[in-house]
Design a protein around this nucleic acid. Structure first.
Length: 421
RNA sequence: GCCGGGGUGGGGUAGCGGUAUCCUGUGGGACUGUGGAUCCCUAGACCCGGGUUCAACUCCCGGUCCCGGCCCCA
């Protein structure tokens, strides 16, 4: 037997139905906020990702040489491809350009709970705005999304890379060393971070103040004590985001991200019930375009892991129904099969999903199958009824049956199923 | 890459150094024009490789995949 590739999944019909329902919600909310869907290739030049994240990511990507010797990678994320696309073809769109994308991504990592080698991201980007309103809108959308999905326990943690960076600017720590410090803070290695400052001859008073800020956590009031443009900007983002309802939001200035392209706010969303892989979303504002050879353009975006949203929904007890067929049509005799096919056809043309018997099975077996398919009605076409131009209509839930005109059955079912939905 | 726990029909399970139990599901039948009840029949499994042994599904080793965790998480 040939096995699945490690870390990949097959989705059975019921599961696929659930995933599609979630995607429908994602597309709906994106449209509600005025974002437009795009799609980029599964394959990209590996360079796109090594430029963004460093050569180290090659270790964690599916990459290979194609027959022309080009270095190719299966995309490990969606932001870099979107910005590449923006630079090549979308830069003349009116700004703000609001885009989203739901696609599979690939990472060569050890699979564990909520982590697969092929996974799905929902990525939202706002390109062209450097105002706090853009960052705030992402939070509004994310919060709204969690509510629509029925996720009761989600926690937003938000910071701003500029706050600590501007404090470092006044110290002997060189610009290019700042990221190394931020990486330590991001990984919560506070002792190492503190040691780092000491080793760079940062005065202990200043270093103490920096570490204090890195450990700052709480509601938006913790920002009052912090000076500078970055803190003011973050305050403004929070003010805008909270004008339309509450969100479970914590200011955590230890959320910083050590990568150079982050320019402003940075945030993460956790669903604690997911355990080790609890982060369902990460986002922030960044400047990637120049790295890829484009003009500098302010951008902010976020990416949800679709697979973890599904897990979180399931833990929250939100189950989705399976996809059923509305009507099953069967023939009681060989001579009625053509009539059966025509009835199914007229139902389908009216938008009523209908199946007919493909096995030439007995009525008993066909009804059993109809039942397993969750059909609400069965239409039975038999010689006795056909003689007077009728068919038997059976309500599969109640078992109630009635004769109904052959010509009227499709319209009647459309009416009944339409009003019941 | 590392650590721990696992792998028996499609799904869920029992079991033992002498090739396997039950439930459910599948297909057919009782049902000759009526489903989800019942009964009967049929098909269907010990992850792969090596070792120990007269004999391995069982014990040992390696691999692989799954589950969970570490590292990482763009």
């Amino acid at each position: 037997m040939i096995q699945r590739v490690r870390g990949t999944r097959d989705f059975q019909p019921d599961e696929m139905g659930r995933r599609r329902q979630l995607e429908d919600i994602l597309r709906k909310i994106s449209r509600d906020y005025g974002y437009r869907e795009i799609q980029t290739p599964t394959l990209e030049n590996a360079e796109l990702f090594t430029i963004k994240s460093g050569p180290g990511v090659l270790e964690e990507m599916y990459s290979f040489e194609d027959k022309g010797g080009r270095k190719i990678a299966l995309r490990p994320e969606l932001t870099a491809p979107i910005i590449r696309f923006y630079i090549s073809d979308l830069s003349n769109y009116p700004i703000p350009l609001k885009l989203y994308c739901i696609s599979n991504c690939f990472r060569y990592e050890e699979p564990q709970s909520g982590r697969y080698r092929e996974f799905y991201q929902y990525d939202v980007e706002i390109i062209g705005s450097d105002a706090p309103d853009a960052d705030a809108e992402l939070l509004l959308l994310a919060n709204d999304l969690c509510r629509r999905l029925g996720l009761s326990d989600v926690r937003f943690r938000i910071g701003h890379v500029g706050i600590v960076r501007s404090m470092l600017d006044g110290t002997p720590v060189k610009k290019e060393e700042q990221s190394a410090f931020l990486r330590l803070v991001d990984k919560k290695r506070m002792d190492d971070a503190s040691e780092f400052l000491k080793s760079r001859d940062v005065p202990s008073k200043t270093a103490g103040r920096i570490m204090e800020v890195c450990n700052t956590k709480g509601d938006s009031s913790v920002l009052h004590a912090i000076e500078g443009d970055a803190a003011a900007y973050l305050r403004e983002v929070l003010r805008i985001a909270e004008t339309d309802g509450a969100m479970n939001l914590t200011v955590d200035l230890g959320v910083v991200r050590g990568l150079d392209y982050y320019t402003g706010i940075v945030f993460e969303i956790d669903a604690p019930e997911l355990g080790a892989e609890k982060q369902i979303c990460g986002g922030g504002s960044y400047s990637l375009s120049p790295l890829f050879g484009g003009k500098a353009v302010p951008s902010t975006g976020m990416a949800f892991v679709v697979d973890r949203l599904i897990l979180a929904m399931e833990k929250g007890g939100k189950a989705a129904g399976k996809e059923n067929t509305d009507v099953f049509v069967l023939a009681a005799s060989e001579s009625q099969r053509e009539s059966m096919i025509r009835i199914a056809g007229s139902l389908r043309r009216r938008g009523v999903s209908a199946e007919f018997d493909l096995m030439r099975r007995s009525m008993s077996k066909s009804l059993k199958y109809a039942s397993s398919r969750g059909a609400r009605y069965a239409v039975m076409v038999g010689d006795r009824e056909a003689a007077s131009g009728k068919v038997l209509l059976r309500n599969m839930e109640s078992g109630v049956q009635e004769e109904i005109g052959l010509e009227d059955v499709a319209e009647e079912l459309e009416k009944r199923l339409g009003s019941a939905i």
